[in-house]
Design a protein around this nucleic acid. Structure first.
Lengths: 154, 154
DNA sequence: ATTCCTGCAAACCTTTTGCAGAGGT
DNA sequence: ACCTCTGCAAAAGGTTTGCAGGAAT
């Protein structure tokens, strides 16, 4: 499997070239740190990573860059309860959803045409067209000790 | 149908009595405004409502009160992309999901038995029982200028 | 009387913005 | 050369906290 970061790089380059934006070392580093981290990174996390290789970098650059990544369709901004924005990589042409075992933390992916269709219907009923969605199911197997997934959990 | 606010009042009273907290006019007003608003209220919304009846009330009180409501299990704090916390009533044994207009920010609620059922099935297929889930649909009407929801957006 | 609450203002934290200089095209 | 990007610092939200007086028990 090709590294997702390469796909992102291409996408980003196209986006930037289209509007005359420039390729800089900072953007490279941030992109790399972002994908290396895997997901749900905060600005602080990223800044910390990037500063190990480029000590001068400041918050503003990271903020601006993540916003750019968002516009380029490379990163997605999420908000949890801690008041900080967190970012996760956008994985293309495959909008799978997640089902997460609350016992062992295993994350499965699923995609269900029936649900997709219902979503479109519901949106239409409100006069909207679906752009994207987020769907996470949390559940558990029986008990921690009998958790079927534990073996394969990270 | 009994007003949900009464249920919440009872729940809140129990919680407060248990820990010697006090019943005040402010808390009453905020609770009422909170339930009157229906859902997805921001602190500003609440403060505005409450100040119509109690001009002196400040932000701090509303923040502290909503935090209290959260702890008492009467309100649930949510974070969307606009950087503000929004609150919605906790309605027992009934959960809804959200559909959000990316043009005007209007938030609708929906609940769909078909989707609920599929979720349970999908979870079962992975050996899990659903505990809770999070489902947000983002979509738009045509263009900002023709946005149907704009009229009712805050 | 005691203890909790309120309102104000200041503090705090995250994010955004203005600007002058550095860097990419 | 031109225009964008960066880093700094200041500004701008949103939320929290310290404190002195006020209210509930």
């Amino acid at each position: 499997m090709k590294a997702a970061v390469e796909e992102a790089q291409r996408k980003l380059n196209v986006y930037m070239r289209e509007r005359g934006l420039k390729h800089t070392r900072q953007r490279d580093e941030i992109l790399e740190a972002f994908f290396a981290a895997g997901g749900h990174v905060s600005i602080d996390d990223l800044l910390g990573q990037v500063q190990e290789r480029m000590p001068g970098v400041g918050y503003a650059t990271v903020y601006r860059t993540m916003k750019l990544f968002g516009e380029a369709g490379v990163a997605h901004e999420r908000h949890f309860k801690d008041g900080q924005s967190r970012y996760e990589p956008v994985v293309d042409d495959e909008h799978h959803d997640h089902i997460i075992c609350t016992v062992c933390g295993t994350i499965f992916e699923f995609e269900d045409p029936v649900i997709e269709q219902r979503q479109a219907d519901i949106a239409a009923a409100h006069g909207l067209t679906v752009e994207h969605h987020r769907h996470e199911i949390y559940g558990s197997c029986q008990t921690p000790s009998t958790c079927v997934h534990r073996a394969r959990a990270g």
